[in-house]
Write a protein that binds this DNA or RNA. Structure first.
Lengths: 240, 240
DNA sequence: CGCTGTCTTGAGAGTCCTCAACCGTGGTGG
DNA sequence: CCACCACGGTTGAGGACTCTCAAGACAGCG
């Protein structure tokens, strides 16, 4: 039986006006399109939650009753096949918006990779927000359009690239996303990486080991990578 | 040197009011969001063109100066890698909208599979239309969101499925899209199919031959397929 | 300290790719 | 009219890359 989702008590300890203005995701998320004077109403329609690592909070094909804004942690979006195989679509993090459903049901399941914090809103709140603030709809189109271009880039990876090229692309994308110089953290395990780039876990491990023995990358721990040679990774990822 | 794009003379022979009202793509495309009284203005900002089979009409990474609505034929959207490999993203047809660019440049190239007819509009016309008709923006969000879910489905195919499962999925998707009962036409060649589902041309041919010898499908010509057993295809495509 | 889970490493097998030849059709020109 | 060629599609043999199965290494935790 799945554990019940937990309300975030810290959130409700705050005065309503501060719930959104103090949010880490506010400057980057779709909420940025909501003017300050309306944030209190926004906060009133939402529920802040904490999702434990591994816990699922969106079920594929469920009626899309809510939408979500992540405020901390990393999630994984995945599609399952009856034979047990699964494809991870993306690893959304703080500021990312979830829950656009193209025909009534969610297109993917969502699970927490590490502890995730998010705000959950009822779907008709989204409709009302979009009607009232056209900037919100515009922002949503931008975000969705960006997601689409990322998905297309991933199709290129899955359709054309070798194991080593996939790993290089993945590491570079992580470095770009988290922008922490040479050191990048991988909150997800090898199995998640494998499901994301269309390989088996052993192949991921072997490819990483190969890059390490070539001196291109190094490991502090299995989830902490240091990139020694960006040029090599870029040449691999670009398939030049 | 690429051949110049051709203006469609037939289009300009029509009175301006009829150019959009008589358009085959109008009921299904994003133009459906434009009220009839504004169609004359819409037609005035657009240029109708015919693209010969094989001709490219969008170049990857070019500045996204236009957007397009297909009115006839089939196109292919593709991303190229320096090593010559390419991934086909989708096969848009009549009614489909092209040209949303997430950061200034087009994310893919577009080429005509067979003879394509389309309407080309300047990008700022899109901005003005969206400002004036919120329904247009809403429609665009719906369309983009649907594209995203299709892309995610394709990621599942590229990341998880075997050659036979990919072919079965492709045939079913075609049957669903064109909705012509048992007989489906494949305007694209084997090479395009291969680039779309992440296989080599020989593997596509072998997989089709295998389905044929199993009695699941049949061929009138290489581009005309008859599906004899939907159930088998569905079992393969869903990986059950 | 043993256990559990994740990650790594090894050996063998399988699927798909590569290279190559062959087939059928449509168009061209002698 | 038919030979010829070009092109797309099919078929075959061998090889490469990744998967599968299995065992070992390592860290975290009761």
């Amino acid at each position: 039986m799945p554990a019940p989702l937990r309300i975030d008590a810290q959130f409700f300890a705050l005065p309503a006006v501060a719930r959104c203005t103090s949010c880490a995701a506010r400057p980057v998320g779709v909420c940025a399109a909501i003017p300050v004077h309306a944030l209190t109403r926004l906060a009133a329609t939402g529920v802040a939650m904490r999702i434990r690592a591994g816990q699922r909070f969106i079920e594929e094909r469920d009626v899309a009753a809510h939408f979500f804004t992540l405020t901390a942690g990393t999630a994984r979006l995945l599609k399952m096949l009856p034979n047990g195989r699964q494809q991870i679509i993306s690893f959304p993090g703080s500021g990312d918006f979830l829950g656009l459903a193209s025909q009534g049901g969610y297109n993917y399941a969502a699970e927490a990779v590490d502890e995730v914090r998010l705000c959950r809103f009822p779907r008709d709140a989204l409709r009302r927000l979009m009607a009232e603030f056209p900037a919100m709809e515009k922002r949503l189109l931008e975000v969705t359009s960006y997601e689409l271009s990322m998905a297309q880039e991933q199709m290129l990876l899955l359709g054309c690239k070798s194991a080593l090229e996939r790993i290089a692309s993945f590491l570079l994308a992580r470095a770009r996303k988290t922008a922490t110089g040479q050191r990048i953290m991988l909150p997800m395990g090898r199995a998640d990486i494998a499901d994301y780039i269309g390989l088996r876990i052993e192949t991921v491990s072997r490819s990483l080991a190969h890059l390490k023995s070539a001196g291109t990358i190094g490991f502090a721990t299995p989830s902490s990578v240091v990139i020694h040679d960006f040029a090599v990774l870029e040449r691999l990822a670009f398939c030049a």
